[in-house]
Design a protein around this nucleic acid. Structure first.
Length: 835
RNA sequence: GGGCGAGUGGCGAAAUGGUAUACGCGCUAGUCUUAGGAACUAGUGGAGCAAUCCGUGCAGGUUCAAGUCCUGUCUCGCCCA
């Protein structure tokens, strides 16, 4: 890169983005332009937040898009007089660092921090209006100390607990996974099949807040509908009944959960999950061996394979019967893998006539199918054979005293009977599980717990935090956390009795780290608390959160859980962290997903070097709305660069006409081209402001900027200072400032502007002055465009109608037909209806 | 199978029920130039010499007027089963 650009800037020869950008970035950093005074209270607060990156090595275009969007919003709000908080940090614990350590023998910390240094440099090159003094990294002691504090906070409130349970195990990652991290039976990270393992693990009690997590969704008006829906489906509340079926000849009762108690007279058998603890106890000797074989086979199947409706059903009878408490009837008990032990009670009553999977199972094993619900209004033929399960609600038939009731009423009465007679009750069931947070990995926050032979499970006292990650570990071990290989870590005195005890060697899921980082940004250097509650009250919730849709459930739900838990004891005032959420689309390359294997990665460094950050920012906002996928095309980037060059020429070519201190004449006194220019300016400012305020429609914002510049380049302001022209240029630069901050700032200064555009106020606009003096009227005959004419705006409807009817083309079209109706839309259109 | 969303030029895409294709990419022709992969100018949905006709996945409907609203249907995407 040439170094002689300083001269050409002074000569305002041509657009030199690299020199301009470096110059302003340096100046902004030195003057602390983007520092947020958190205590300042004159301006209303605005918290703009991007999902912080994992420091994988280098920035990718998805990052560039994400942070550009948030940056434009932050700058836009600052120019509207808000005190903006726009922080950045690093989600810096995680597996890749550990894998790099194994492969290249580099300590995870070294790998991570060198990546952070590189990516921070890249982000600074992008020109973000970020307050870097608030930077956090979740892998640093001054952060994970407080993550541990959070763990203990939850532990003390009974929201963190340890239990043995069958958990998701990813062989590839050598660790367990939370339910949310298993997608279609595969690991969210590496797509390998997840198996079940029975382990003693730490959980966060997300189910404690199931109802609140669900209910609060209604208040999140600023979230995309589909994210709300995904969370709602994930929590999946179902209201039903738990009913106990006695086992024939044994003193054992099997509770089942059903959402359809109205179908209970149609039960013809019962199914237990193969892992159900009662199976061992119940199975008759004849079946024991084959049942054991079946259980072994089940372990190899994924949840997806087990529950898919289109999969062939398998199962075995246990050779015993259960008694339906409503009918007294004995029904066979089976096991099958389509029933999951984690869901409900791990046992279902099977009603093949009214449940698809039960129907498929009954058909395969020739179990009876008994119809007890019929569509309301249809004459009942209970004996008729069903071709498929009827799963809709309806009217009960062949159901004893409940016959004739509709499903809703029957559910209620049948459940009440169970309650009255003591063999069941109403039950609300959620699909949401508790969050499994233990990980058998090294590069994460150590769980601050000590196990003492005398005192049991003992939390590490606050004053002993952080529990530091040891460095003397062996990364090559499998199946246990590498932390467990550290000789210095494993043993520690019990905080209660002082005798030698064992430390917990698992670390926390990295989603724990990211569940509260937005709070730490507000008070990042606090050494005595995770944050000062007073400041949180002042700054939360996040006004605009921007990130990928892939976190629709995981990160967003965990964060909501944290806020609820913290708000319950007043650490936060609000219980929802993110007021508005924007989920940006992916960045594609020529219509395909960017990936290393396809070799179609666009490297931000190369773009910065060739065109500059402003071109990258401008382009990535230009072609699609932020929510949609964005296609990166080389030729289109060049087009954007050329456009910025045109902006440069446009603003620099008539410098003598620009003087920002001139007073604008009154609108009524403007005439001719000047008046038109003023109208153009007002229209552009108004349109762009609306586009940003309503939907963050940056693609149309950019098309409006282009139209305005196209117009301005042809405008001849003359040699003398021109107030209206200067006003137009000032407006253009302010409108562009959030998107191309360096270019706008440079041109602002070249044109004689003072100070930072960042702190200038957003241009005002007058709706009255957006209207052109002349308008084109479209004339339709019977709804088809036949003619157009141009007139002064604001003419009355009757005049427009009269003018339209006199047009030769219109007269010709009407011919000898009768005009039955005329519709006039002022300043726009006349439609003549003739028959 | 259920829910949600989307289908508009060669491509990315615009359009409070009111001129469909703004803005851009690409393409064509021209001007300037030693040169052009720079800049500028003009053109660019389809058919037709033309008047004109046809055009927003498909089929209907409501309306003076439908890309937009309603009903059905097909395809694709996502989520849930």
């Amino acid at each position: 890169m040439e170094t002689s650009t300083e001269k050409s800037i002074l000569q305002i020869d041509s657009y030199q983005p690299q020199a301009i950008e470096a110059k302003w970035q340096k100046q902004w950093e030195e003057t602390g332009l983007y520092k947020t005074d958190i205590e300042e209270s004159h301006m209303p607060k605005y918290y703009a937040l991007s999902m912080f990156p994992y420091p994988s090595g280098r920035l990718h275009m998805g990052h560039v898009r994400n942070y550009t969007i948030t940056d434009v919003i932050a700058r836009f709000k600052r120019m509207h007089g808000f005190n903006v908080l726009h922080p950045m940090g690093w989600d810096s614990f995680g597996l890749p660092a550990e894998n790099a350590a194994i492969q290249n023998n580099i300590p995870p910390a070294d790998w991570t921090f060198s990546n952070i240094d590189y990516m921070r440099k890249q982000l600074k090159q992008l020109g973000l209006a970020v307050d870097w003094d608030r930077e956090v990294a979740t892998c640093k002691e001054d952060y994970y100390k407080w993550t541990q504090w959070m763990f203990l906070y939850l532990y003390q409130r009974g929201l963190a607990y340890k239990k043995e349970a069958p958990v998701n195990w990813c062989e590839q990652c050598h660790t367990v996974l939370a339910n949310e991290q298993v997608i279609d039976g595969r690991c969210w990270r590496d797509d390998s099949l997840v198996t079940k393992k029975k382990l003693n693990q730490w959980f966060f009690k997300t189910t404690e807040y199931a109802d609140r997590l669900l209910k609060n969704l209604e208040s999140l008006k600023g979230w995309p509908e589909r994210v709300l829906l995904m969370q709602k489906n994930w929590i999946n509340k179902s209201i039903g009944a738990e009913v106990e079926f006695a086992v024939e000849g044994r003193d054992i009762k099997i509770p089942i959960f059903t959402t359809r108690p109205d179908t209970i007279f149609g039960v013809t058998y019962m199914v237990l999950a193969p892992e159900h603890p009662l199976v061992e106890l119940l199975v008759s000797e004849d079946y024991r061996e084959s049942v054991q074989q079946y259980i072994e086979n089940t372990k190899l199947k994924s949840e997806m394979d087990r529950t898919a409706t289109d999969k062939e059903k398998t199962g075995l009878p246990l050779g015993i019967n259960a008694i339906n408490p409503y009918t007294g009837e004995a029904i066979p008990v089976w096991i099958s893998d389509y029933v999951l032990v984690e869901y409900g009670t791990g046992a279902v009553m099977a009603v093949p006539a009214h449940d698809e999977r039960d129907f498929a199972f009954a058909q395969k094993f020739q179990l009876p199918i008994r119809r007890v619900i019929e569509q309301s209004g249809q004459a009942g033929q209970p004996g008729q054979a069903l071709k498929a399960a009827y799963t809709e609600p309806g009217v009960l038939i062949a159901s004893g005293e409940f016959t004739g009731l509709d499903s809703e009423t029957a559910k209620e009465k049948i459940t009440r009977l169970a309650h009255d007679k003591g063999f069941g009750k109403e039950k609300i069931q959620y699909r949401l599980r508790d969050w499994l947070v233990s990980r058998q990995r090294y590069w994460g926050t150590p769980i601050p717990i000590i196990y003492c032979d005398h005192c049991g499970t003992v939390p590490v006292p606050d004053e002993d935090l952080p529990v530091r990650l040891p460095k003397d570990v062996d990364f090559t071990v499998k199946g246990v956390s590498p932390v467990a290989t550290s000789p210095s870590f494993k043993n520690a005195p019990c905080p209660k009795c002082g005798t030698m005890a064992r430390r917990e060697t698992d670390t926390m899921d990295t989603f724990v780290d990211s569940s509260w980082y937005y709070l730490r940004y507000i008070d990042p250097h606090n050494e005595t608390k995770p944050f000062e509650p007073q400041l949180i009250h002042q700054w939360m919730p996040v006004d605009q959160y921007v990130g990928g849709i892939e976190h629709a459930i995981l990160h967003l739900m965990y964060s909501r859980f944290f806020m609820m838990a913290l708000s319950d004891s007043g650490w936060t005032e609000q219980d929802e962290p993110f007021k508005n959420l924007l989920t940006q689309g992916m960045v594609l390359k020529d219509g395909a997903k960017m990936s290393k294997s396809k070799g179609n990665i666009v490297d931000p460094d190369a773009i910065f070097k060739e065109f500059g950050a402003d071109t990258a920012r401008f382009f990535i906002l230009s072609d699609s709305p932020p929510q949609a996928d964005f296609d990166w095309k080389e030729s289109a980037v060049e087009g954007c660069f050329k456009f910025l060059c045109r902006v440069w020429r446009c603003v620099t070519q008539h410098q003598s006409a620009i003087s920002f201190s001139l007073a604008l004449p009154a609108y009524e006194e403007m005439s001719g081209e000047t008046r038109e220019l003023f109208q153009w300016t007002n229209r552009t400012v108004g349109g762009i402001t609306t586009d940003i305020e309503t939907q963050f429609q940056f693609n149309t914002v950019i098309s409006k900027i282009r139209e305005f510049v196209n117009y301005l380049s042809k405008f001849e302001p003359g040699e003398e200072p021109n107030a209206v022209y200067s006003h137009a240029i000032a407006a253009l630069l302010k409108l562009m400032a959030p998107i191309t901050p360096h270019l706008a700032q440079e041109l602002w200064v070249i044109s004689g502007g003072d100070g930072a555009l960042y702190t200038q106020s957003w241009p005002k606009w007058d709706a009255v002055a957006t209207q052109s003096d002349v308008v084109e009227i479209v004339v339709q005959v019977n709804g088809k465009v036949r003619d157009k004419f141009t007139v002064a705006s604001g003419l009355p409807q009757s005049t427009l109608e009269e003018m339209a009817r006199q047009r030769p083309k219109v007269i010709q079209q009407i011919g000898d037909q009768q005009v039955v109706k005329v519709i006039v839309v002022p300043n726009k259109l006349v439609n003549i209806v003739a028959k």
